[in-house]
Amino acid sequence: MYRYLLMVVLAITLKSCIRFVNEPTEDDYEPVVMSRTDFENEVGVSDTQPLENPGKIYVYGKFLFVNEKNKGFHIYDNRYPNSPQKVKFLKAVGATDIAIKGEYFYVNQATDLITFHYIESLNSYTLTKRVRNVFPQKQSPGGFSKSVEENQIIVNWLKVTD
């Protein structure tokens, strides 16, 4: 019995000392950085775009929101769930999450929290508020941080190719 317990403890100890090939290191990714001015200008609503790298999915009322990782949200009319219709693309570079309450869409845009007001009768989406630096800078997929200049924002991380 003690032999098996000793083997388990030894295996756990050794695993913590060994870096496996699949585990990312700090050098595996490089940040995509934008100036704050460019970052804030990369927000708006545009015509639909093709899905390329979808993330989280949200359903709210008649809408379906599909995150395009670090780019924004595809907005679909979901009144007929068997065939959702593309409506618009909510562009917010660095965005990965959304919360909705009533006519307001709250989006994390990398370090900032932005709010869009949706007026159904006009089918309009208007950026109404930006709260800067609510969130920390994005970390790499391996959980590493990178220092950037004061007016720069990390909007994504790209895998470094050999």
Rank of each mutant, 00 (worst) to 15 (best):
R3D: 07
Y4A: 14
L6Y: 15
L6G: 07
M7K: 06
V9Q: 13
V9G: 07
L10I: 03
T13I: 14
L14A: 11
L14Y: 10
L14Q: 06
S16A: 05
C17N: 07
R19C: 03
R19P: 07
F20G: 13
V21S: 05
N22C: 08
N22M: 04
E23S: 09
T25H: 03
T25E: 01
D28I: 04
D28P: 07
Y29W: 03
P31H: 14
V32Q: 00
V33G: 01
V33Y: 10
M34T: 05
S35Y: 02
F39D: 05
F39W: 04
N41C: 04
N41L: 08
V43M: 06
V43G: 08
S46Q: 01
D47L: 08
D47Y: 04
T48V: 13
T48N: 03
Q49M: 11
L51N: 08
P54G: 00
G55E: 00
G55N: 03
G55S: 01
G55C: 00
K56L: 10
V59I: 12
G61W: 10
K62H: 09
F63L: 15
F63D: 11
L64Q: 08
F65V: 11
V66G: 03
N67D: 04
G72S: 09
G72L: 07
H74E: 04
I75C: 02
Y76S: 01
N78T: 01
N78A: 10
N78E: 08
N78S: 01
R79H: 15
P81N: 09
P81Q: 15
N82T: 06
P84H: 05
P84S: 11
P84M: 05
Q85Y: 03
Q85V: 12
K86T: 15
K86V: 01
V87P: 06
L90H: 08
V93T: 12
V93H: 07
V93K: 02
T96G: 12
A99W: 08
E103V: 12
F105T: 00
Y106E: 04
V107S: 00
Q109H: 12
A110C: 06
I114C: 14
T115G: 11
T115H: 01
F116H: 09
I119F: 07
E120G: 14
S121K: 12
S121V: 12
L122N: 06
L122V: 11
T126H: 15
L127S: 07
L127R: 10
V131D: 06
N133W: 08
V134M: 10
F135N: 00
P136Y: 11
K138P: 04
K138S: 10
K138R: 13
Q139E: 14
S140L: 13
P141G: 04
G143D: 06
G143W: 15
S145Y: 10
S145E: 11
K146T: 04
K146H: 09
V148D: 11
E149T: 06
I153V: 14
I153M: 11
K159N: 02
V160M: 12
V160Y: 02
D162T: 11
